[in-house]
């Protein structure tokens, strides 16, 4: 037990590497804060374009969404970070991670919000039209509020996944929380930084994970 504590919960090692972890946490939060709104906006754009029901456009949108949902996000990251420089386009690791996660999640959010928009009965659009709402005001005031309520569970679940995904930045040496913990582990020859990083992720995301689980449970109620 002592050996276990000394290895995984070593206080000395924790004090030594504490600044690294704080730095890492800041970068993780920054990644999440930058990426989440970008990805949601892209998804929203896809859903709104889809709702106009232009045939060729919808086929293109569905292909875009399905192709992106078929790629592991890290494949996209490797393509952007290691592949694009061959075209002379060299992105920094932060920009590459933001781009990979945004593009990947635009597919997920696009699909979720599209399903949400489709779940709103057609009569709502017609009624808005009859009341003199223009197409944009119809989407913003009538369709979207109902659509988002209908897909709140997958929306929240995907947002949680997005924040978790920021840890792939570690693979392109961006010192976010996971990467910082690895660096610290190699400096101290002790896995305590890894335990600490895992705990920080857990404490940060756990309330949100509970909320998502509650929302998902509701979607299963038989009516």
């Amino acid at each position: 037990m002592d050996i276990f504590l000394e290895n995984f919960f070593n206080i000395d090692s924790l004090i030594q590497i504490y600044p690294l972890l704080v730095q890492g946490l800041e970068l993780t939060l920054l990644l999440a804060i930058v990426t989440l709104p970008l990805a949601v906006l892209c998804g929203l754009l896809i859903a709104i374009l889809y709702s106009f029901h232009i045939r060729w456009l919808n086929i293109l949108l569905l292909i875009y969404v399905d192709v992106l949902r078929s790629f592991p996000v890290i494949v996209l990251l490797v393509l952007i970070f290691y592949g694009l420089p061959f075209l002379g386009l060299k992105l920094g690791s932060f920009a590459a991670v933001v781009m990979a996660i945004t593009v990947n999640n635009s597919g997920y959010y696009g699909e979720i919000l599209r399903a949400g928009v489709e779940s709103v009965p057609k009569g709502q659009r017609e009624a808005a039209h009859a009341l003199g709402f223009g197409p944009i005001r119809t989407v913003v005031y009538i369709i979207l509020p109902q659509a988002i309520r209908n897909v709140l569970a997958p929306l929240a679940s995907n947002s949680l996944e997005l924040v978790k995904t920021t840890s792939i930045a570690a693979l392109v040496a961006l010192p976010e929380l996971l990467r910082s913990a690895r660096v610290a582990q190699e400096q101290t020859y002790n896995p305590t930084p890894l335990t600490a990083a895992a705990l920080i992720f857990f404490v940060l995301l756990w309330p949100f994970a509970r909320w998502v689980a509650k929302l998902e449970r509701r979607t299963m109620i038989v009516r």
Binding site: K164, L178, A197, A198, F202
Partner: peptide, 16 residues
């Protein structure tokens, strides 16, 4: 395990 990122679990198992 629902809360931890997959990569964190992988790294922990492999290096921890």
């Amino acid at each position: 395990f629902r809360t931890l990122p997959q990569l964190v679990v992988i790294i922990f198992v492999y290096f921890g």
